[in-house]
Design a protein around this nucleic acid. Structure first.
Length: 423
RNA sequence: GGAGAGAUGGCAGAGCGGUUGAAUGCACCGGUCUUGAAAACCGGCGUACUGUGAGGUAUCGGGGGUUCGAAUCCCUCUCUCUCCGCCA
């Protein structure tokens, strides 16, 4: 959520910035400012009436104490009219209040200066490509065939137990999962991220904190009986650790990591994109989350990008980094880098990580702040990224590292898998 | 699932209709003292909105009510804890 103060102060900049998303904010901003003005006026009026009532109440109390019953009763009569006015104004102010929140919820984050304007993924900017397409001297198999051949992942069995999008990992397939998780966590640990094992279900307040609610509830599994949500990413529980927190000084840099399964309903997805590991309802992911001083956020983003690069390079994968254009950048993000790995057999790029900087968009709702040196409270900046999501990494590992004899495990993973070949 | 207790500032913990935004202790910050530190003493110390400012308003888990006036009384919801049962 954008701060109303920002819209008051930088109206034009907000509108111009949002244009890069192809979002015409003029109407929303205008009505927002109009309502905001009304709100402030009504609120001021309401407060002065409340102030008057407070004074009267004190006086009446004083009169009763002094035993001046008659005077007190007379004073009481005066309050009736004010109370009525107060009640009316209170309703008005509350109404305007909800209108403001509703409008604010409609506005996505203002993109960073370096975000290119654009409508879709076609306008994303390729900022780096590492590696080259592998040339096969045999018929390269897609990962779902490899999984079947070596009995690594059983999609049909998942359908039997649960449904589509809930695969069963078996044998070396299961070990590979565990190895990747350990590898990613160890790398995060080395980079200074503190490891957490958070709950996999969260309450409504947490959903609002990171912005999954109110809009995206359809994407989360919901447990009606207990009013809880299955997490779509570890970002939700990890970031919400710092909901309603005021950090005591300017001197902070919070780096968290956590492995969790992630649950996504993926309502509306269909077609070939859902084949094999490309899109699942339950998948594993190691997430990195950072809470930073505004002045350090951009540097943090760079570090996170470098971290993810390191992971992909250690796995020997051919990847590229895209700076997302305005239209493709997520609602809450100000700047996002997507990492895509080339899937040799499917002959397409698969998104394996998304690293985003949210500025104060999340911390506004989270009420996550810090104390400045002159004792003021200021909003923190939040960032997060996948480091990494497993399924598509597994898909590309299997496809890119396949040989006629089997799949070669990258050097960096071997100490975690305990084997160097899937055959 | 059954029974009970409770939710007050960073923490502990008073208050139980009227100068209470809230005693007291601890923690924290500033100062005095000290070569320095500790101790002692003095002062400060929640958050948010609003106002150029003095200030004003709200806030004692959330919502509603009674009252001139509520942290204090009533209703309701949520959450936490304890005991019993059940399960691991």
């Amino acid at each position: 959520m954008l701060e109303i103060q920002r819209i008051r102060n930088e109206k034009e900049a907000v509108i111009t910035g949002l244009k890069k998303r192809n979002f015409d904010a003029t109407e929303v901003v205008d009505s927002l400012l109009g309502i905001d003005l009304q709100w402030r006026n009504s609120k001021t009026e309401l407060e002065s009436i409340s102030a008057e009532l407070n004074i009267l109440a004190k006086e009446i109390g004083e009169l009763f104490k002094q035993g001046k019953q008659a005077e007190a009763t007379a004073a009481k009569a005066k309050t009736a009219d004010l109370k009525e006015k107060e009640a009316v104004l209170k309703t008005t102010v509350e109404g305007l209040d909800t209108q403001i929140i509703q409008l604010l919820y409609q506005l996505p984050n203002v993109p960073n200066e370096i975000v290119p304007a654009g409508k879709s993924e076609l306008d994303n900017v390729n900022v780096l490509e590492v590696g080259t397409k592998r040339i096969f001297d045999f018929e390269a198999a897609p990962h779902w065939d490899i999984c079947k051949k070596f009995d690594l992942i059983d999609f049909e069995l998942g359908v039997k137990i649960t449904g589509a999008g809930f695969p069963v990992y078996k044998g070396k397939g299961a070990k590979l999962q565990r190895a990747l998780i350990s590898f990613f966590l160890e790398e995060a640990d080395k980079a200074g991220y503190q490891e957490f094992i958070p709950p996999l279900v969260v309450n409504e307040a947490s959903g609002y904190g990171t912005g999954q609610l109110p809009d995206k509830e359809g994407q989360m599994y919901y447990i009606n009986e207990d009013d809880l949500y299955l997490i779509p990413t570890a970002e939700v529980p990890l970031t919400n650790i710092y909901r309603d927190v005021i950090l005591p000084s300017e001197d902070f840099s919070i780096k968290m990591t956590g492995y969790t399964p992630c649950f996504r309903r993926e309502a509306g997805s269909y077609g070939k994109d859902v084949r094999g590991l490309n899109r699942l309802h339950q998948f594993d992911k190691v997430e990195i989350v950072r809470i930073e001083h505004p002045s350090n956020a951009e540097k943090a983003l760079e570090e996170m990008v470098d971290h993810v690069k390191g992971l992909l390079e250690k796995l020997g994968l051919h990847y590229r980094i895209l700076r997302l254009c305005g239209g493709d950048t997520g609602f809450a993000s100000a700047l996002t880098y997507d990492f895509e790995v080339y899937s040799a057999a499917q002959e397409k790029w698969l998104e394996v990580s998304s690293v985003s900087m949210f500025n104060t968009f999340q911390s506004t709702r989270l009420k996550l702040r810090f104390k400045t040196n002159d004792k003021k409270t200021q909003l923190c900046h939040t960032l997060n990224g996948s480091a990494l999501a497993l399924p598509r990494i597994v898909a590309s590992l299997l496809e890119n590292h396949q040989t006629p004899e089997g799949v070669v495990i990258p050097e960096a993973l071997r100490k975690f898998t305990g084997f160097d070949m899937i055959n």
